[in-house]
Design a protein around this nucleic acid. Structure first.
Lengths: 216, 216
DNA sequence: TTATTTTTTTAGATTAGTCTAAATTTTTTA
DNA sequence: TAAAAAATTTAGACTAATCTAAAAAAATAA
């Protein structure tokens, strides 16, 4: 098995390389709140274990076995988040740090039973897809609200920023997962977006629009 | 907060001193599968933190704050065991090692919500009492079957040995928590005990009788 | 009550993960 | 394309937790 630190590195590398190709030492360091020199040390270790492809100075990406481990951790994280919200009534802005700890409980059987207990949910409370026991998940195309044109409508289906403060702000504006919204106006001056949700109209900044994802 | 190793030491010391007074270095070492010299090092650290009373060569016991931490861990362990058996349908012989890992999830709020979710259970699947959020629990008097006289009856309410093999054996003999039994005979030669459970009569060895606890 | 055995502690080393500071490589810019 | 800046790696050190081997203390036995 892998240590807690190794698991956290693999997960960070997974997220950093989700879209583009390679994760740099500095990117990893900043996403794990550690120093570049510590990262280099760990990259060597993970490369020795054949979990990442590492060429000095060139950044890294996951090998198939590294990705499998990363997806296993993400699966656990998201299932625990779902459990915390759906069964223990936590709010969606309270569960990230807890799940960060719980994702390292090692048993596969435990997580598969938890999955079954909850009815095989496909998405966590923030709209992120939950990998199944083989690491597979549907990646539906989501767009940031900032990339949508006037009069388009969609369903809020995800966030790019998982911080409590952002999630609490969304709660306050009643912009939560599953809400149907229509983009009614885009302010040219600062790219704020006016969206209609239910009976209410809200104006959100460009930054918020950028971190709020919808399915069209 | 305390490290995982510290928590495990505190828990071990708690269990070793549950009845008598002090835990010795060697007792702690053997209960944690480590060496006496490692134990000495850790005892100094725990004493510095005022979690144990330690006089070199004289063994240790917990201070009130050490006991509070130990009881918190035991509470978590037993609540997770209950969860695993009652909600995820694990067998009582499968949950110990899993709970050993889960007991170190730090959040108090999580465990209190879990407690509520399950309806504030008072005993774990092995019959051990679950401390409440203040560390309090009822300690009902249990007796090993080996200490009971012929024709007495009682309810199976606990075990002294938590190993899978013992628990599986009890399952096979249908000697599980909550079963009403009557001691029908005690073999003088080897102190085996004959017990009647439901419609069946089973003979159990002295060792088994010694590890099986009943409420009279 | 001295000698032997057992228990415990000390001394010194090891491993994982981290750090700072210095050196090196790559990238950017002039 | 050479100099400056940024990114990365190396070197050396630190902490927590462990270990083995040796020393010291306590318990037991002769």
């Amino acid at each position: 098995m892998n240590t807690l630190a190794e698991e956290n590195y693999l997960k960070a590398i997974y997220h950093l390389t989700e879209n583009d190709g390679n994760a740099s030492t500095n990117q990893i360091a900043s996403s794990l709140n550690t120093k570049a020199s510590s990262v280099t040390d760990m990259l060597k270790k993970l490369a020795d274990k054949a979990l990442i492809n590492y060429t000095p100075y060139q950044g890294v990406n996951l090998t198939p076995s590294g990705e499998k481990i990363a997806l296993g951790i993400i699966r656990k994280h998201r299932l625990w988040e779902y459990f915390l919200v759906e069964k223990l009534n936590f709010k969606w802005d309270q569960v990230h740090d807890l799940a960060e700890e719980m994702e390292h409980i090692s048993s596969e059987e435990l997580i598969d039973r938890l999955d079954q207990f909850m009815g095989y949910p496909t998405h966590d409370p923030h709209g992120d897809p939950i990998p199944d026991c083989n690491g597979r998940f549907n990646t539906h195309e989501l767009k940031p609200v900032s990339a949508v044109t006037i009069n388009q409508c969609g369903v809020i289906s995800g966030v790019r920023d998982h911080s409590s403060s952002f999630l609490q702000y969304l709660d306050k504006q009643q912009l939560t997962i599953g809400c149907k919204i229509i983009i009614t106006d885009i302010i040219e001056y600062d790219h704020s977006v006016v969206v209609q949700t239910g009976n209410k109209e809200v104006q959100i900044s460009r930054e918020v629009a950028n971190n709020l994802l919808i399915a069209l």
